[in-house]
Design a binder for these strands. Structure first.
Length: 239
DNA sequence: AATTCCAGCAACCGCCAGAAG
DNA sequence: ACTTCTGGCGGTTGCTGGAAT
């Protein structure tokens, strides 16, 4: 196994390492990832040094960052494993049109998927699928260009991968990233000369953004709303 | 059967921002 | 005000397994 700085292990995680990490999170919760290597013990082993037999505690020799990523991208119970559905593909393509490579934002709107999953899926499947279609598109400014640029001086927006699972069922709070996306959506709509309302009800009383709440199932998804506005056709044929 | 090629994806890297001391 | 720690993000790398030759 390759070793990184400070003797940290690198490369694929073993089942044993996964188990240790999950045990740590069960006991201590998420966060303080750099403590994992110090706190966790995978077991004891006997080492003979000369005449002495020493009990050595074997910790999880992973850097905190690696532990965090392993949890976020793989071990977290909220993560959906397996193939992407047609619905998810469609949603990602639309959101990418809207947001560009803001993978965390996109993933935050695709329940159970992480930014890494979405990014990989885009790079391996969807970009190809899209590349074929793009050749057929007429020259037109990409909708994502209507969004404010990312970088310094721009309001930072972040959406943890599991945000959609943590929203209260009657959430009246409008998060910054929701506003950011709403603003972007309105920019896109404005670009195409469409009328603004993309919200289900007037105002922000009932944000429909893909909460995991059963009571919200009757509310239209972004996909449905975009369909209502014929945005899909505009994206596919207008670009 | 052996080798090469390549797609898919897990993991790493570098950078950045915010919090805490 | 400065440093250190921690977490978040997007881009990239490299391993793995299956397909092709």
């Amino acid at each position: 196994m390759e070793r990184g700085d400070k003797g940290h292990r690198k490369g694929l995680w073993t089942e044993e390492e996964d188990r240790v990490l999950m045990d740590y999170i069960r006991l201590h919760g998420k966060g303080r990832w750099n403590q994992v290597a110090k706190v966790t013990v995978t077991g004891n082993t006997l080492v003979t040094i000369g005449f002495f037999v020493v009990v050595v505690r074997i910790g999880l020799k992973r850097c905190g960052k690696s532990c965090r990523l392993r949890w976020i991208n793989y071990l977290s119970p909220s993560i959906k494993h397996g193939d992407f559905s047609e619905e998810e593909d469609d949603l990602i393509i639309r959101l990418h049109n809207l947001l560009g490579n803001r993978w965390s934002l996109i993933a935050g709107r695709v329940p159970g998927r992480t930014d890494n999953q979405v990014k990989n899926h885009w790079n391996t499947h969807l970009s190809k699928k899209l590349g074929i279609k793009r050749q057929q598109r007429a020259k037109l400014k990409a909708p994502s260009e209507a969004l404010p640029p990312k970088g310094k001086g721009v309001e930072k927006v972040s959406a943890p991968a599991d945000t959609c699972f943590e929203l209260p069922s009657n959430n009246n709070v409008r998060t910054d990233d929701q506003k950011y996306i709403d603003d972007g959506a309105q920019s896109v709509l404005g670009y195409f000369g469409l009328q603004e309302p993309i919200m289900v009800n007037e105002g922000y009383e009932n944000p429909f953004w893909f909460t995991n709440d059963e009571s919200n199932l009757s509310t239209p998804t972004l996909t449905q709303l975009l369909d209502q506005h014929s945005l899909d056709n505009l994206f596919w044929h207008g670009l």
